[in-house]
Design a binder for these strands. Sequence first.
DNA 1: TTGTAAGCGTTATCAC
DNA 2: GTGATAACGCTTACAA
Lengths: 347, 347
Amino acid sequence: MSSVSISDVARRAGVSRATVSRVLNGSTEALVTQGTRTLVRQAVEDLGYHPSAIARGLAGKPMNTVGIILAYELPSVTTDPFLSPVLDGILAVSKRERQKTIIFVEDNWEDAFASLPVYCDGHCDGLVLVAPCTDSQIVGALQSGRTPFVLIGDSREMPGIAVADIDNVAAARLAVGHLLAQGHRRIAALCGNRELLSSHQRLQGYTEALAEWNVPQDNSLILPGQYWEASGSERARLLMELPIGQRPTALFCQNERIAVGALEGLLSLGIRVPQEVSIIGIGDYPAMIGATPALTTVHIPLRKVGERAVEMLLSHVQQSPEREERTILTGWLIERGSTAPPVCDIS
Amino acid sequence: MSSVSISDVARRAGVSRATVSRVLNGSTEALVTQGTRTLVRQAVEDLGYHPSAIARGLAGKPMNTVGIILAYELPSVTTDPFLSPVLDGILAVSKRERQKTIIFVEDNWEDAFASLPVYCDGHCDGLVLVAPCTDSQIVGALQSGRTPFVLIGDSREMPGIAVADIDNVAAARLAVGHLLAQGHRRIAALCGNRELLSSHQRLQGYTEALAEWNVPQDNSLILPGQYWEASGSERARLLMELPIGQRPTALFCQNERIAVGALEGLLSLGIRVPQEVSIIGIGDYPAMIGATPALTTVHIPLRKVGERAVEMLLSHVQQSPEREERTILTGWLIERGSTAPPVCDIS
DNA sequence: TTGTAAGCGTTATCAC
DNA sequence: GTGATAACGCTTACAA
């Protein structure tokens, strides 16, 4: 294939390499005669020439490559209900914009931090960090470098840092607000990984919703944990050990994996959902659509987040004048079968 | 971050760039004095130097990057039950071997063929083609180039072409053999996309199994189609329009998406599975585990195929002496609830 | 053991 | 308009 270089083309066309380059890069169309132009084109065609991305990279041109960094310890990256749509969005826009996509998978953000030099070794024009740990040093390190980057799922306000994320506070407020509107007053919060910002934001949404409805917050109903099914079922079971009066009548699960786990936990205890306890999650993950009863949830446009992240990154890379700094997308409530008004406990 | 070059390090350490390069590449450890060695190391440390991948690429060193090419027209790459485990395997091994992974997603193999120059522009040391279309010119073109490549899911015998795949013939024989052993004699074959080799191989397995049991093949029971749910339900319905005596008592679905569709189709017609009609698929896709009744299937180790593909590719890239050319992995039967002996039709 | 210099395939800055 | 020529950052003979 390649191995035919610009010099070969130049020789064949009887011109200099510079001219070939000019024809190919079409800079200011007028700089080359129509004649030599076609001459060069012909030579390119004959030889099957294609420029080396590496060489032009070295010469200062963009590599047309975006790097995606994600930390994931489990064996399957593609089936994570959060990552999966985000990746799809990223890949879709990358393709549309004719960008190559390098996927860097690390076990955790410490490893990712250690690999920073690799991400910035010239291969990529810019980076997308998917849901970095709040306490990772990576963002700071990246800031003092020259590689443009965009954060997904870490929307703290930081001056000059580009972010694409969903509005976690609003999503949680929507979910908890729905429960409150149905009459629930004892609502447990099953939180996600505390090292992820989303978890704090969703807890804040919970707090805000309660405040809005003038319902006092009972901290014993706020349970830390992980964004996983097992963590959900475990906590759901735990809550059901409470004396009946102190039991929550509804569970606000910070994502849908927790919700699925919680549902399973309750059902295994013979507790009926939503008749005895309501469950709501955040995510609307396609993989969880089969749950019975179907889970009421807040849909969050994750694919869109992935899309916007790449779009923002490219606008940074290309130094567009109107580059956006923050894209925060909002979700919407989807009522299904796992929530209902509480039976007797409208206190 | 970067922008500090090898010259800076050389200057700081008071040596030549060549020496720095020697220290860093550790070629034949003895070539540099312990003294200068530490001197250089120190300078590297102080300046936070990291070599530019593109520069060393230009200089002829490997880029430590593998390219993955897949054609996929639907919006979600990550949720395809075939692609997903393959990708996971690829990503896992890439990570383990410290290779960067570039994912090239194309709408179809014609587009992929057209993009060949991009794949081979120096970015990647080698390529993995996931399930290329049998009639795509891409394999031929790649063959006349110098970029090493491995095929996944296209195990035709081609001299000198590296392949990782599952044994489709054996998988199909396993599935159909199971139905035959249960007493089925009228077994329909719901085929997958004919432009994929797997479909032909699975049909061959069907034929072989019938022959093995001395059951004459009825070509009217062989239905072409696609590897999708809709194509499965459509054909299942069609088959049920046959007069009762000509109806198949079992459906051999060439993958599990077809099987899920077929199941749905039969149930919607009020036909009981497996009491009236048995269904078997190939795949054992995690996403389809919730079907009722649970689908009997042939598990195929797709993740492993992805893993082996990258391992093989790297052994080619690194010119290992013992490089494998073909890895064909076999699946195994998983009996679940969608197959049972036929009621009356043991002819 | 170390330095010098050529080369990898481009692009860009000059002259002409 | 076009052609030398010098970068770009690194590796690697070849000299010393």
